[in-house]
């Protein structure tokens, strides 16, 4: 059971690690890392779906009866990866600005700071 679908289990585990990091860490940089992990787990999910057992890379060849893996999810996930990179970059840029404005990258500290505004 586990080993049959171990790729999906890895997706789930990675996702949990990512979400847990977002939830539990108050350091904004760590939060961003958690978020990236969460997104990456979804990339893996897509890539896993495209794989067909025994299938080769989807490159046109002249050999008959070749089984190809489905290339579409892989293409899709390229887009998602770009989005993920953009999100991470934007998030990190915001963290830099937050550090400048609040003097901290710790969310708890910033929130207690805000209350005193």
């Amino acid at each position: 059971m586990f080993f049959d679908h171990f790729n999906y289990w890895i997706v789930v585990i990675l996702m949990m690690i990512g979400l847990y990091t977002v939830m539990s860490r108050s350091n904004l940089v760590k939060k961003m890392i958690g978020l990236s992990l969460f997104q990456i787990s979804v990339f893996l999910l897509y890539i896993s779906m495209g794989k067909i057992e025994g299938g080769t890379a989807p490159i046109v060849s002249n050999a008959p009866d070749v089984i190809y893996s489905n290339p579409l999810p892989h293409v899709l996930i390229l887009t998602a990866i770009v989005v993920g990179v953009a999100t991470t970059a934007l998030g990190l840029a915001l963290i830099v600005r937050i550090k400048e404005a609040f003097g901290s990258v710790d969310e708890e500290e910033i929130l207690s700071n805000e209350d005193n505004l």
Binding site: V22, T87, L94, R97, I98, A101, E107
Partner: peptide
């Protein structure tokens, strides 16, 4: 208001989770 930054960041975290 500098809190715009934290608001945007929080939206980024939650929004990304939603989009994902």
């Amino acid at each position: 208001d500098r809190r715009a930054l934290t608001a945007a960041f929080q939206y980024l975290i939650i929004g990304t989770i939603g989009a994902t």
